[in-house]
């Protein structure tokens, strides 16, 4: 399978701390690739470099064969690399539908249009509603974002990312802070997307990772210590030692 996203020998240090240490990672088209690792392993720093919020000290990031290492965040999104945030970064004073419509708008050409009422624009609102339906948020479409529950925020994050119609999703702990029921629903949703969209999934929830991912990379102290199928990772003694040991294997 062709490689869609690829990092090569990525380094990022903060003072003496090596947050990302020689990370080479490849996500194939059609694959769900999970990155797991204990707290402080450098997952957040890795995501920030992939999205362009942090510049790596060394190394390159390629997306669809193109070097995107120096590109700003918004250009990466335009190339089709969409992300969800771990800590919800929705627009609090806008409705759920507004949030998704703004993503639809981002895909639909120039936003330097100053006169027509964007809230009455069916070319934005129609698709926005269908994405909300897809994640199960149609009933709260008109609710202001800050009044939604945590679980709804996570779902909305996903709807916004989908509305960008990306070629690949970067999911930063999409299950963080969710209850069991919400989690199960989100996992089901992600599984239904699996055939359409390649994903890079950074997640704590082991059950979810092992049930969704085609391949898993394990990040410890900024280094990838193993990459393989969920089964291979489960059986890897180095991984068990560094990471899974505490869970009693």
């Amino acid at each position: 399978m062709a490689t869609l996203l690829e990092t090569s020998r990525l380094d990022k240090s903060f003072g003496a701390l090596k947050a990302t240490d020689d990370v080479s990672l490849a996500v194939d088209a059609g694959e769900v690739h999970a990155v797991i690792g204990p707290n402080g392993a450098g997952k957040t720093t890795l995501i920030a470099q992939l999205t362009g919020e942090l510049a790596p000290d060394r190394g390159t990031i390629r997306f669809d064969g193109r070097d995107i290492t120096g590109l700003p965040t918004w250009r990466r999104t335009r190339l089709g690399l969409a992300r969800s945030f771990q800590i919800t970064t929705l627009l609090p004073q806008m409705s759920a539908e507004d949030n998704v419509a703004l993503a639809v708008q981002a895909r639909s050409g120039s936003s330097f249009r100053f006169f027509a009422d964007a809230r009455r624009d069916t070319t934005l609102r129609g698709p926005a509603r269908s994405f909300l339906e897809r994640v199960g948020l149609a009933p709260v479409a008109q609710t202001r974002c800050r009044e939604l529950s945590h679980g709804e925020h996570r779902q909305l994050e996903l709807a916004v990312a989908l509305a960008l119609q990306p070629r690949m999703l970067l999911l930063d702990e999409p299950l963080a802070g969710m209850g069991q029921e919400d989690s199960a629903r989100m996992v089901a949703l992600l599984r239904s997307l699996k055939s359409e969209l390649p994903m890079l999934l950074v997640e704590h929830d082991m059950d979810a990772v092992f049930s969704l991912a085609d391949r898993v990379s394990v990040l410890v102290y900024g280094r990838i210590i193993a990459t393989g199928t969920p089964q291979a990772i489960r059986d890897d003694p180095a991984v068990r030692n560094a990471y899974l040991g505490g869970q009693g294997g």
Binding site: T77, A82, T89, P92, Q93, M94, L102, R113, A118
Partner: peptide, 23 residues
């Protein structure tokens, strides 16, 4: 109320989100 205005209002609420949307 326009498309431009929605983006501008979004900038106030979360610039990071707007960048992630590709603006």
């Amino acid at each position: 109320r326009s498309r431009f205005g929605m983006v501008l209002s979004g900038c106030r609420q979360s610039e990071r989100r707007l960048l992630a949307l590709g603006y």
